[in-house]
Simulated assay, not measured.
Amino acid sequence: MDGAANTRLLEPALRGWIEYYGAIRRSCASSVLRHFDLRLAKWFATKHKRGQSGTLRRGWLRLTAFRQRCPHFFAHWAWAARCAGQTNDHVSGRAG
């Protein structure tokens, strides 16, 4: 199975986690989705091996580079970008 097929399988689950955990608390959703990113980094590390030392670190570097190139590839990356752009001005009562 290739990466595009895996993405089509994972996308509904990611959207469901965002809807469920995002409604409870944003920090809960972030921790669940960070775990997903860790699994992606491990997949990158094993998929693109060039020796045994530092493979997870290289996986994180590859994942970060891919995320910068395609920030809306996974639903949780797009969600994180939207959350980063929001402020808490509505909570503090200040005008935006």
Rank of each mutant, 00 (worst) to 15 (best):
F73C: 11
A75F: 11
A95I: 09
K49N: 01
L61A: 13
A13L: 08
L40Q: 12
S30G: 15
R39V: 09
R82V: 12
A95S: 10
T64Y: 07
H35S: 15
L61N: 05
Q52A: 08
A23R: 14
L63Y: 05
L10N: 00
Y21N: 13
P71A: 06
A84D: 12
G96L: 11
I18D: 05
R58S: 13
M1I: 08
H76I: 02
T87V: 10
L33P: 06
L40A: 12
A13K: 03
Y21K: 09
G85L: 06
A5T: 08
D37R: 01
S53T: 14
G59S: 03
D37S: 04
A81S: 09
L10P: 01
C83R: 13
L56A: 04
L40S: 08
A13P: 00
Y20H: 09
G85M: 06
T46A: 00
K49R: 03
F74C: 06
R67P: 04
A95L: 10
G96H: 07
R8L: 06
C70I: 06
R34P: 00
R39F: 03
K42E: 12
T7A: 09
F74R: 11
N6C: 04
R26I: 14
V32G: 09
A80L: 13
A81E: 09
A95H: 11
I18P: 02
T7K: 03
V32F: 14
L33F: 10
A5D: 10
W17H: 12
A84P: 02
A41I: 03
A23I: 07
E11R: 00
K42I: 07
C28H: 15
R82E: 14
F36I: 13
L10M: 05
G85V: 04
A81Q: 07
E11M: 02
G96Q: 09
W17G: 12
G59Q: 01
R58E: 15
R50Y: 06
L38I: 12
G54T: 01
A75L: 11
